[in-house]
Computed example of a mutant assay.
Amino acid sequence: MAVHLFTEWSKSPGHLDHWERTGREQGEECGLPNLGQTCYLSAVLQCLYHTLPLTHYLISQAFKEDVVKRSPSRGQVVQAAADILTEMDRGKPKKGTLAYFKGVCGRMDDLFAGSGQREAHDLLSSFLTWVHQDLSSSRNACKKCGLEPERRSTISDIFEGIHRATIICPESGAIICSIHERFWSLSLPLNNPGETPLEDALQQYYHTRAIKWYCHYCRREHLCHRQMHILFLPKVLILHLNRYNIKGSDPKLNWVTFPTEELTLDGHLTPGQKGRPWSKFSLYSICNHHGNKKRGHYTACCRSNHPQHVQTPWLFFDDEEVRPIERFKNPRDAHILFYIGVSQVQQESRQTCLASGGMGLQ
């Protein structure tokens, strides 16, 4: 049995500098059994398992103090997730535990019942919502933007960002109003065939749009400009690469190139707004989709759970199969990207490791 060093997430909210290594025995990185077209489930679970702040919170059983007994699932989703992630952490996931997790998801939404293939991003979005409901508690309104109070949880603390949409009158240049919206992931439409840099997809997502709006300056409805920026960055950034937004488009004809280190969203922040303690994001997991919208197969690529991120290998997960990736390259079938915020201190540490001969990722 291999000894892995598990990186503990800082218990102080929003603080990413404090990564505490705790030595404990774990099983080898493991795959998950296919219960019959459940590759989408396995790929999402691998990405969630490698989301260290979430995994530590669940397998440490810290979540039990936060469970809301009157949630829609009565705490069953978060408990089922903790059970399967704990068994994955020990290197011995049981088919029955995975089947129970799938059954709980199926009871929450008929879409995930039965043995049919499902969309991984749909499952991920639903899962985060259900666990948020299982753990949510009342909090105050956002101090930065005055956004209405909403029930908060560890899920929202990890994955939530806030957008500010500003409606501008093009005739007077005056700001008509500002709207704040929470998000847990960004779904980026890929409209053009060929290779698309991730930054281009983000630029397209955040570009100024023309919408009809009632302007109280002009006292009439007319085309206005809608500008959207990020007011509040999430700790973990999920990017969904949506290749199926145009009828008749072939997803194999468009793919995205993306950085594994130092992804920055500074250009999309609200003007004058500084980010959190981290300024860049580091890739740690990818959910891949091979095939087309009607049929296909899901796999995952994830960084091993070691504290020395640069020196650890990437692993490829295909249901029960697990194999190391010696030279990581952008998979053309990438479907969902998982990035984690990295502080300036961690960036400098990684650069030093690379310069001293650490394993580079292409």
Rank of each mutant, 00 (worst) to 15 (best):
V3N: 08
W19I: 00
Q26M: 15
E29K: 09
G31A: 06
G31L: 09
L32G: 07
P33K: 02
N34S: 09
T38M: 01
L41E: 03
S42P: 06
T51I: 10
T51D: 07
T51N: 07
H56W: 08
S60T: 00
Q61Y: 11
F63K: 00
F63L: 01
D66T: 02
V67F: 10
K69L: 03
R70G: 04
P72W: 13
R74S: 10
Q76F: 02
T86N: 06
E87Y: 01
M88F: 07
R90E: 10
K94W: 06
G103K: 06
G103P: 00
C105K: 06
D109S: 14
R118Q: 15
A120Q: 05
D122Q: 14
L123D: 05
L124T: 10
L124A: 04
S125H: 01
S126K: 13
S126A: 05
S126W: 01
H132Y: 03
Q133D: 03
D134L: 01
P149H: 15
S153I: 02
S153W: 00
I162G: 00
A165R: 14
I167K: 14
I175W: 08
R182Q: 12
P193M: 10
T196W: 01
Q203F: 12
Q204R: 10
Y217C: 05
Y217F: 12
C218M: 14
H229P: 01
I230E: 13
L231P: 01
L231H: 06
L231V: 12
L241W: 05
L253W: 08
T260Y: 15
D266V: 06
T270N: 04
P277M: 00
W278K: 04
S282D: 05
C287R: 01
C287V: 15
H297I: 12
C302A: 14
V310M: 09
P313F: 14
F316Y: 15
F317G: 01
E321F: 11
V322N: 11
I325N: 12
N330D: 13
N330A: 06
A334D: 09
L337Q: 07
E348F: 01
S349M: 13
L354D: 08
G357D: 12
